[in-house]
Design a protein around this nucleic acid. Structure first.
Lengths: 245, 245
DNA sequence: TAGGATTCCTACTGGCGAGTATGATCGAGA
DNA sequence: TCTCGATCATACTCGCCAGTAGGAATCCTA
């Protein structure tokens, strides 16, 4: 079946001779990281499909067409695998915070930008692992680490809300509860997105931000652009782009 | 340790002779149901603490100070236990829908009443099981059943949103996405409520409904009553008709 | 007090799956 | 050609846990 990797040997990438005896070592290193990433992504997909506890490392290995010890060659344990998936997802959100930091915009717009990226991250292949990495399934050390990362994000959202209330771009509200509501709605995307991929992650995030912004009770002020008085104009139920996997 | 139940023998409970031979049988029946409920509640608490997969039936039995076969005397399997916990939680939400049905109120108020009850249910001891009962962990039959119940609730929310848009009490919006956002925010309560019980379930639900109603962007219209710059001011108005369980 | 039903326990089975011991294979350098 | 490190497979161990077999105690009815 799998007769070793049939990598095209020495693809033309090194124009320079690169006489360094470490070169091969370097390429090996890179190769290893590529494979390690593949392991983590495969794990994320399997966890996403069947859940952490219902996925065995044999499953993940089979998905990669290797055997279990091979997987253990790249990671030390199953829980580390879950942890890495979590980190991969959460890192995108942290990046979103970094990107808006220092931007000269009202806090609400910065918050919206973060929420959009947040929603996209949750709808990504790592979303499930990100929102479902349970402290109960992990060692105390990793559990603490995950909690810290989650808390960082939570407080980042709260801070943006507070700033928005101060600069007047956000309705006065309780930052803590509001942050919980926003994050909860976005996190939950991971639960239904697998079954209903009629929208892209970005589209969902956009729709959610619109809901958050407007609220349920009718706006009395003039809202010329959002105000389709009709029903939502059955916009392309079952929109395109849903890669049917 | 536990030398059988030391029931005071023949406590004076039957003043009337109650000659019916079925009486004892009835009491047995009731007794059994009480115990079965206790098993389900104990399971819910354990699942809540440690997760479904990290909880063994020995754990649940120990919590009840009995042994595993005793638990199996009241339920047929672990997954049935999870299923029952799910049903117990979701039943409260269905009751909320029944209670507001036919009420002469704007749809937004009916929706708010449902959302409040929804939030309380998620913050209850069954909340965790309700939102985390994974199809992946259950047999196809139970999985279908759970999906149907979830779908019923989802469509109930969508319907109220549509009605609200029609009667003008709710801002025009996409019912599907809005319902996802609302349900997601409320479902997520189960994830953080265990660690932060500084508010009651009702208070949380109230705060969330306030967030949903108002939205993030500042209201331009005159809103003299909500504009308290401080926190959302615990108004426990407890919508009408809500039979408090 | 027998006899049946109910309730619960002790002591097991069987399987699944995380993790490992051991060694085969391959590429590269000496 | 020999060695050495990197990579990966075969074939295990070992513990946990869902579920069960069989029986004992207790209560109800007759």
């Amino acid at each position: 079946m799998n007769s070793r990797r049939t990598t095209a040997p020495a693809a033309g990438k090194n124009a320079a001779p690169a006489a360094s005896p470490w070169k091969a070592s370097h390429e090996r290193q890179r190769d290893r990281e590529v494979k390690r990433d593949a392991v983590i992504r495969a794990a994320a997909r399997e966890f996403n499909r069947k859940g952490y506890h219902n996925t065995s490392l044999d499953d993940i290995a089979a998905r990669l067409e290797v055997t279990k010890p091979t997987v253990y060659y790249y990671v030390t344990s199953k829980e580390q695998l879950l942890f890495q998936c979590f980190v991969a997802g959460v890192e995108r959100i942290r990046a979103a915070f970094r990107d808006v930091r220092g931007l000269e915009l009202p806090a609400r717009e910065r918050l919206n930008a973060v929420l959009r990226r947040y929603g996209e991250a949750v709808a990504s292949e790592f979303g499930w692992c990100m929102v479902r990495a349970e402290e109960q399934d992990l060692s105390p050390a990793m559990s603490r680490h995950i909690k810290a990362l989650k808390s960082e994000i939570d407080h980042g959202i709260r801070r943006l809300i507070r700033e928005g209330v101060q600069d007047g771009s956000i309705q006065p509200c309780d930052p803590k509860m509001t942050a919980f509501a926003l994050a909860g709605a976005l996190n939950w995307i991971a639960h239904w997105y697998r079954e209903d991929q009629s929208l892209s992650g970005a589209q969902i995030a956009e729709a959610f931000v619109a809901v958050f912004e407007t609220g349920l009770s009718p706006r009395t002020g003039a809202l010329p652009l959002v105000a389709e008085r009709e029903r939502p104009a059955r916009r392309t139920r079952r929109a395109a782009g849903a890669a049917p996997r």
